[in-house]
Measured scan of single mutants.
Amino acid sequence: TFVALYDYESRTETDLSFKKGERLQIVNNTEGDWWLAHSLTTGQTGYIPSNYVAP
Rank of each mutant, 00 (worst) to 15 (best):
T1V: 15
T1E: 13
F2H: 08
F2K: 02
V3E: 07
V3M: 07
L5G: 02
L5Q: 05
L5W: 04
Y6W: 13
D7N: 08
Y8H: 06
Y8R: 06
E9C: 09
S10C: 06
S10G: 15
S10N: 05
S10K: 12
S10R: 10
R11N: 13
R11G: 10
R11D: 10
R11L: 12
R11Y: 10
T12D: 11
T12P: 02
E13L: 11
E13I: 09
T14L: 12
T14V: 11
T14I: 11
D15W: 07
L16S: 03
L16R: 02
L16P: 03
L16H: 02
L16M: 14
S17K: 06
S17Q: 07
S17D: 05
F18M: 07
F18Y: 02
K19F: 09
K19Q: 10
K19A: 08
K19W: 05
K20N: 04
K20F: 05
G21N: 05
G21T: 02
G21H: 05
E22G: 01
E22D: 15
E22W: 04
E22H: 07
E22T: 04
E22Q: 05
R23M: 15
L24H: 00
Q25G: 05
Q25V: 15
Q25N: 10
Q25T: 12
Q25R: 11
I26E: 01
I26N: 04
I26F: 04
I26H: 02
I26D: 01
V27C: 10
N28G: 15
N29W: 14
N29Y: 14
N29D: 13
T30R: 11
T30L: 12
G32K: 14
G32M: 11
G32C: 09
D33F: 15
D33I: 11
W34V: 10
W34S: 08
W34G: 04
W34R: 14
W34H: 08
W34I: 10
W35A: 04
L36C: 11
L36M: 08
H38Q: 14
H38I: 15
H38T: 15
H38F: 15
H38R: 15
S39E: 01
S39K: 06
S39R: 05
S39T: 02
L40S: 05
L40Y: 08
L40I: 10
L40E: 08
T41I: 12
T41V: 14
T41A: 13
T42D: 03
G43Y: 06
Q44D: 08
T45W: 13
T45Y: 11
T45K: 09
T45E: 08
T45V: 13
T45D: 06
G46E: 00
G46D: 00
G46Y: 01
Y47H: 06
Y47P: 01
P49E: 02
S50I: 06
S50K: 14
S50V: 08
Y52N: 04
Y52K: 06
V53F: 07
V53P: 02
A54R: 11
P55D: 08
P55R: 07
